[in-house]
Amino acid sequence: MSLLEVTDLKVTFPTSDGLVQAVRGLSFTVDRGRTLAIVGESGSGKTVSTQAILGLSPRADISGTALFEGVNLLQLDREQLRRIRGAEISVVFQDPLTSLHPLYKVGWQIEELFRVHQPGTGRAEARKRAIELLGLVGIPRPDRRVDDYPHQFSGGMRQRAMIAMSLALNPKLIVADEPTTALDATVQAQILELIGRVQAEFDIALILITHDLGVVAGIADEVLVMYAGLVAERADRRTLYYRPHHPYTKGLLESIPGSTGARGGRLRPIPGSPPSLIDIPSGCAFHPRCPYAMPVCAAERPPLATVTGGGGHASACWLPHEAVGLGPEADALRLRAKEA
């Protein structure tokens, strides 16, 4: 049994402009101790889908199931969810200032976790563990910094403090939503290294949400590419980067500077822009931007189907299963399929 098993998750928001269909039937699993990366452009539903599962989307209409160790999170009441969130599943957000309380000392906020979730813990013990945790995530002189307020920390240190908090109660799963997007490259490298290290050390499963395929290449076991609230493609890391099937994945990879050969040459962007989630294109939502779109694409939604044998590689696209890869050969295959 997987640690987390999400099936047919749908999330909508009623708004004055119409119904926003943020997540439209998302399924995925995360195994113990593994890293699942969820990538996709902004607005593709990465944040909404994980927040819905964790009960952090109060204004949303949610359906589907999300089994965490066999328990459906979507059926729990607020109090039950709050207990799981924190103790068994913890969350690290992009902007630690929104999740660290500005008026309380950083150490106190970590100690508070023990007080709430492990009421037997004494004051001195909680403080000692808070200092240990700050040291573990690389805060220099943690015994002194434990009494600092969040604004006395730099951006990188606040993100470290958030990671310390997320580790406090030995969770089985950490959800990290763009944990390094607000940070500079050299600090981002520090934080990613830290996340990888503690995850391996404590055997924690990780859902890493990002819009940056570069960040994922080094650490994900499996990658889920989202487009317009659905899985476009799912594969292990190497397969996704070297043998992508879905034209959207291919487009993302080819848009990266340096990916298409010589410096200064032309990049191959995906034309157009992501769709409005109130008025989603019919069939395959990617069809207005897809260079290989065929008549069937606008008519019918492609199911998420296995492509190349084994390995869990699946893609939601009507192109033939063997149309994988980035080179001209794969391209020719895709174009032939389109002509046929």
Binding site: P140, S154, G155, G156, M157, D184, A185, T186, V187, Q188, A189, Q190, E193, D212, L213, G214, V215, A217, G218, R237, R238, Y241, Y242, L253, I256, S259
Partner: peptide
């Protein structure tokens, strides 16, 4: 050198080979 080694690459094999220079501290 540190900045270059910290720049993410969208290539798992290259990322695996990459030996990062992890700087301490912030700017």
């Amino acid at each position: 050198n540190a900045l270059l080694s910290a720049t993410a690459v969208a290539d798992p094999d290259e990322a695996g080979r990459r030996r990062r220079i992890i700087l301490t501290g912030d700017v």
